[in-house]
Design a protein around this nucleic acid. Sequence first.
DNA 1: GGTCAACCGGACGCCATGTCCATTTATTCG
DNA 2: CGAATAAATGGACATGGCGTCCGGTTGACC
Lengths: 205, 205
Amino acid sequence: MAGVNPIPELPMAAPAPARERADAARNRARVLAAADRLFRDGEPAAVTMDDIAKAAGIGRGTLYRRYPDRASIARALLDEHERALQERLMRGPAPLGPGPAAPAERLAAFYAAMVDLLESHVDLVLGAETGQARFATGAYGFWRAHVRHLVTEAGTGADPDVLADQLLAPLAPDVYRMQRGRGLGPDRIAAGLAALARGVLAPRA
Amino acid sequence: MAGVNPIPELPMAAPAPARERADAARNRARVLAAADRLFRDGEPAAVTMDDIAKAAGIGRGTLYRRYPDRASIARALLDEHERALQERLMRGPAPLGPGPAAPAERLAAFYAAMVDLLESHVDLVLGAETGQARFATGAYGFWRAHVRHLVTEAGTGADPDVLADQLLAPLAPDVYRMQRGRGLGPDRIAAGLAALARGVLAPRA
DNA sequence: GGTCAACCGGACGCCATGTCCATTTATTCG
DNA sequence: CGAATAAATGGACATGGCGTCCGGTTGACC
């Protein structure tokens, strides 16, 4: 804790509005690195702003200057991963991206990608985005728009506005973590979601 | 606040292990009545133990004696409603209860009943049962067992252990409240859930 | 009416949050 | 190169909820 962390130069989201003082940049990197580590190590919801400040080797005030709460830090950490997935959804190859794939298959592919996201990088970090606030996120809006679009395209006559949120619900971090905790593997969870996708969106014979 | 509330004699869950002193019983009734009111009035998550104690006209210590946290109070308030629904599931008429109805229709009926539950009595109270803790509830275990059973009976070859939780996810209080907040009515939400139920469990032609 | 146990309730310590401001430090300009 | 200036820093502070503890009170039973 005392002195020397290499700080692996996380590139992370770098806003750099006009110009950023060198010390500010250095401290932001420290905060993100420290938060990432803390979120992974223990119960994300139990990490306090104080913990992060201490682990980053900076003061409370400095931390609050840039990040008003834990959620904003988690968002900063997630940002690039979510962007990457959004990019693949919009411009990547089918069935994840647009293309000849049927809506049901595209939804299944989206589910698989989200499970990857939940599993590899963020499972712990997402834990910091708790409850209601999740739905206000820009990312959630994007996922909803995507799913809504797929429901509409499927042409099953179902209500897209209602179904979009309901189809996203199983991806809630709480739910995913609980299922993982019950001994279910990511592939099995993804398979369940695929069944759900095909059941709801695939045309009935 | 000072003195006189009729206290509408909520029957509520009355454990009465051996015998309960009159003052204790009176205070429990006051606590439940006060909590019910507070949960309905404002943001449930913002209600503090202190608020409840003050509103009930008792001291902190007294409140903590019986209820270790907000969730336990919410559970006490929910208890009878959940029990009633569980009873109907196990012994009531089809399609909600057991009987000749197809699994998909039984799941749709269950969804409708849960929407009723969320809508009428508890929407606000459920708000107090936040996040992870929800899954540890006895009630949640019951819902899961029920849905798991329906998935198995449907015989679609899907994974019941995985699907049960995923099919329950759209009933999360957070999700329901968010949808209601977006202007969607209970019937519309229930219709969406019914579509989900039939898509996943109804036999394909 | 007396004894005893259960109940009551407010005071207390703890911890996290978010703010504020005196001081330090990077950057720019003469 | 060395001030001037504005930004960044960090720790102290006030606030508020949580959960506990214990001296006093009151209901229940004999």
